[in-house]
Simulated assay, not measured.
Amino acid sequence: MSRKPAHTADSLLDAAATLAATDGPAAVTMSAVAAAVRAPSGSVYYRFPDRSALLAALWLRTLDRFQSGFLAALTLDPPQQAAIQAAHHVTDWSLHHPTDAAVLLAGPESFGSAQWTDEARAAAANRQDHLNAAMRNLAARLGYDDRTDHERLALLIIELPYAAVRRCARNPAASLPEAAQAVDQIVRAAMNPTVP
């Protein structure tokens, strides 16, 4: 009977995420991940054929972790509450998952997306398409029927909270809970001041 590998793909990706959050995406190498989990490099290559595959897997896993809650929020009723909760998800998820948030803040280009396989790039594009479709659906539910309104919605519930998270990540003196509260107030006022 073959021996079960000591390190799972998730445990290796956890180590990669920590390296990226601490020292930047460039620090995520096969040998660095192996050292972080105190395993031979072969353990990493057993799960990921090369660094590009490792980086793509890290990005896609992080995106899935974030988008699951964001996409769920977009389906809530009434639609104004969906927008409020989606914006809240960006800041709340980042507050509770700072390592994963650091990966998202770095962006796919920092993880070598240009060198990913066609399959990995297609997977990332598919996730973006899914998000775009969910945003269009929410916009329709809100009665937003032109491009300007769609852009305003994206700025309000994606870019604004994302900018707050980025600002706090770059400024140690900034408070993400306080920034999250400010974002929440802005989004609530924009959507409907009477929404609880």
Rank of each mutant, 00 (worst) to 15 (best):
A36R: 15
W59Y: 11
A39N: 01
R61T: 07
F70H: 10
T75Q: 13
L55N: 13
R61H: 07
P49H: 14
A36W: 01
G42N: 13
A57R: 11
T62G: 14
F70Q: 02
L71E: 10
P49T: 13
A72V: 01
S52G: 15
Q80T: 12
S68A: 15
L76E: 15
S52M: 08
L63M: 06
T75V: 10
T75D: 14
L71Y: 02
V33E: 01
A57W: 02
P49I: 10
A35H: 11
Y46R: 14
F70G: 00
A57L: 07
L60G: 08
S41N: 12
R47M: 06
Y46I: 06
P49W: 11
R51F: 04
L76P: 01
R38Y: 00
R51N: 04
Q67Y: 15
S43N: 15
P49A: 15
D50I: 02
L76M: 10
L54E: 01
F48E: 02
P40S: 14
A72K: 06
G69P: 13
P40F: 04
Q80P: 01
L74F: 05
G42D: 08
A53R: 12
S43Y: 12
V37T: 14
V44S: 08
D77V: 01
F66E: 08
G42S: 14
A39S: 12
S41R: 15
V44I: 13
A57C: 02
L76V: 00
A53Y: 07
W59A: 08
